[in-house]
């Protein structure tokens, strides 16, 4: 009998699978397809203080084994998320959820977290300091140790719930950023967000995406994710939520061996809306194949 349970910052997950923010909406589109209560949890669509339309279209481009997106944090704003989206999410999902929060200034992060903090369904905050698709915010916090620590500390002051800082791979040294978050009081870090990329339309001789650059995700980026999770695991004591190119149960095991306590699945949800359910159903087979009795035992076992 295999055991898929893991404990993420004090909350037990029945399995480590978490749909990544921005690829799963607020869950209810997917609940039409399968009972999403099979998930460990889900990280909902990145929420900001004010409503955002995001970037102009085209926002999507295909790549070999992956895709670029430059959605730019489209969301209805925190108040509408609380009044409209969370009730719908709660009607289809009964477990604690991960609230993904983004901002353009320290005050915006803290105010959004403060408003969400009283929502009982929220188990964790995932603080996105790594969106590559918005200017003047997001990633600029994730590329400086000082800013990363400052945002973490400020959010720490407004919530007692676990905070997980979502890190950018578009940095020279992700380890130092992770350590800064730990120093600021983070309960965990999640990595990696998308890699900054570009594709060009040969007929038009212009970038395909209106924003010119977009975040690269999909199976192609998995080796980068594995490497960064491995490096961060050696440097911090707080748990890591791993993500980047996960599409199979074997990928989940690989990221956990590198050091991930839980694993987010992103782009794959868009091409196979059943991806998370399929991976969860397949985990016991893969565990048996590799002689794993309990997934919690293999976290960081590759070191």
């Amino acid at each position: 009998m295999t055991n898929t349970k893991v404990n993420l910052c004090g909350i037990e997950l029945s399995n480590p699978i978490i749909p990544a923010s921005g690829t799963f909406g607020f869950g209810y589109e997917f609940a039409e397809l399968y009972d999403i209560n099979v998930l460990g949890t889900l990280s909902f669509k990145g929420t900001t203080l004010e409503p955002r339309f995001g970037n102009p279209t085209p926002r999507i481009a295909e790549c070999a084994s992956g895709m670029l997106n430059a959605v730019g944090l489209q969301n209805p704003g925190v108040d509408k998320v609380i009044s409209d989206e969370l009730p719908k999410l709660r009607s289809v999902f009964s477990k604690p959820v991960m609230a993904n929060v983004s901002g353009f200034g320290v005050d915006e992060y803290t105010e959004t977290v403060r408003r969400l903090d009283t929502e009982e369904c929220i188990g964790w905050f995932e603080i996105n300091i790594s969106c590559p698709n918005v200017h003047g915010g997001g990633m600029s916090f994730g590329t400086s140790c000082e800013m990363a620590e400052r945002v973490t500390r400020a959010v720490r002051d407004v919530t007692k719930k676990p905070i997980i800082i979502k890190l950018s791979p578009n940095v020279t040294d992700i380890v130092s950023i992770a350590k800064a978050c730990e120093a600021g009081g983070a309960d965990g870090v999640s990595l990696i967000n998308t890699l900054l990329g570009m594709r060009i339309d040969l007929k038009k001789r212009k970038p395909i995406i209106a924003n010119k650059t977009g975040g690269f995700s999909g199976p192609a980026i998995k080796p980068v994710a594995v490497r960064m999770i491995y490096q961060v695991w050696e440097a911090v004591k707080i748990p890591i939520v791993g993500m980047g190119g996960v599409s199979t149960a074997e990928d989940v095991i690989e990221l956990m061996l590198a050091g991930a306590t839980a694993v987010e699945v992103g782009a794959e949800n868009l091409v196979n809306p059943y991806a998370c359910r399929d991976i969860i159903l397949d985990l016991p087979r893969a565990m048996e194949k590799y002689g794993i009795e309990s997934l919690a035992d293999i976290v960081g076992a590759a070191h």
């Binding site: 921005g22 669509k45 279209t57 926002r59 997106n69 949800n269």
Partner: peptide
């Protein structure tokens, strides 16, 4: 429009 998922999850094809 260029789409990511085609079923409303990714917000790749939004318009006002």
């Amino acid at each position: 429009e260029r789409m990511g998922c085609g079923f409303g999850a990714c917000m790749g094809c939004s318009c006002k």
